[in-house]
């Protein structure tokens, strides 16, 4: 217990140092993480940098305004014998402090608009994945890859059974014990992750089968709602292989907190192999496919 606590706080301190100063691509949130992650796709640095710039601008304005206020609070105290002045108007300063914010806003708007237009451009994708939200799991259907349509590769992806048992009310199980390797994956792991290739512009078409959900993997830099009757599109191009975790971000009922998203980014060769296996198993008789789907996550975990 104690050593676990010490080890935990030690890793926490290390992660804090990393999160505060490093800009390493985090695959999952870390303890004491203070800032947004840079992400692992070509577009994800956009919100990261915009966040940092806006935070910086706000900090500078805040320091200036609040210092002026604290100087006023210390200089113009009645207890120090300050006598109130009579003026209540000054056109020059009013014009100045209306104009300067406008100029700052124009700069921010320029940065944000260029980032947004690059996000909105889903053309030229090399792969399409259809994402469907259900209460309370996700379904992934592979539509096409490198110009070839994919036949019947699709599966449900829901909370892994260990997290699911641990999260039951009064389970008495320790959420800290839910791990994959060294990574704490409590509520952030699924039975069957979405597998995609690296360095590929992937178009996600996102919809829902019941209520509104929101598909969010912070490493992509965006989230977008999965809405019944509407198909939304967004894209991501992952730059580094790895496992990226996210969650449903729109309240969708009682198990809203328990429908995570895991994206496994593989090298192109590994992905092609994985895809071929999936296609082969989907062509096998239905019964065989069923067993393969059940067996696959277990094999995946051990391997």
């Amino acid at each position: 217990m104690t050593s676990g606590g010490i080890r935990r706080s030690f890793t926490a301190a290390a992660a804090l140092a990393l999160a505060s100063f490093g800009s390493a691509a985090l695959a999952a949130p870390g303890p004491w993480q203070l800032n947004m992650e840079r992400g692992a796709s070509t577009w994800s640095p956009v919100p990261y940098h915009l966040n940092n710039v806006a935070l910086g601008v706000c900090t500078v304005i805040g320091v200036l305004v609040f210092s002026a206020m604290f100087i006023a609070i210390f200089r113009f105290r009645k207890s120090r014998g300050a006598v109130a002045e009579k003026w209540s108007h000054n056109t020059t300063v009013e014009v100045v402090w209306t104009t300067i914010p406008v100029l700052i806003l124009i700069t921010l708007a320029y940065l944000a608009t260029s980032g947004l237009t690059s996000w909105a451009d889903t053309t030229g994708s090399q792969m399409t994945v259809k994402v469907t939200g259900y209460q309370w799991k996700w379904r992934y259907d592979y539509v096409d890859y490198l110009g070839k349509s994919i036949d019947k590769v699709g599966f449900m992806s829901k909370l892994d059974s260990r997290s699911d048992r641990t999260r039951q009310l009064g389970s008495g199980m320790d959420p800290f014990a839910v791990k994959v390797g060294d990574e704490n994956t409590y509520l952030l792991d699924v039975d069957k992750p979405l597998v995609v290739p690296v360095d590929t512009k992937i178009r996600f078409v996102i919809t829902s089968g019941d209520v509104i959900h929101s598909w969010w993997v912070p490493a992509t830099g965006w989230k977008i709602d999965a809405i019944p009757g509407i198909i939304n599109a967004a894209w991501a191009n992952f730059t580094t292989p790895g496992t990226y975790r996210g969650q449903c971000a729109e309240l969708c009922g009682q198990d809203h907190g328990f429908m995570p998203i895991v994206v496994e980014v593989k090298s192109k060769a590994d992905f092609a192999k994985w895809l071929a296996e999936q296609e082969a198993s989907s062509k096998a008789p239905a019964a065989a496919a069923q067993t393969a789907q059940v067996a696959a996550p277990v094999a995946g975990k051990q391997g």
């Binding site: 949130p29 203070l34 839910v178 409590y186 509520l187 969650q247 971000a249």
Partner: peptide, 15 residues
């Protein structure tokens, strides 16, 4: 900023 969604009753241990 670290990625915890709103309106969830339970969360990853990182949070």
């Amino acid at each position: 900023l670290a990625g915890m969604p709103r309106r969830i009753p339970d969360y990853n241990v990182a949070f």
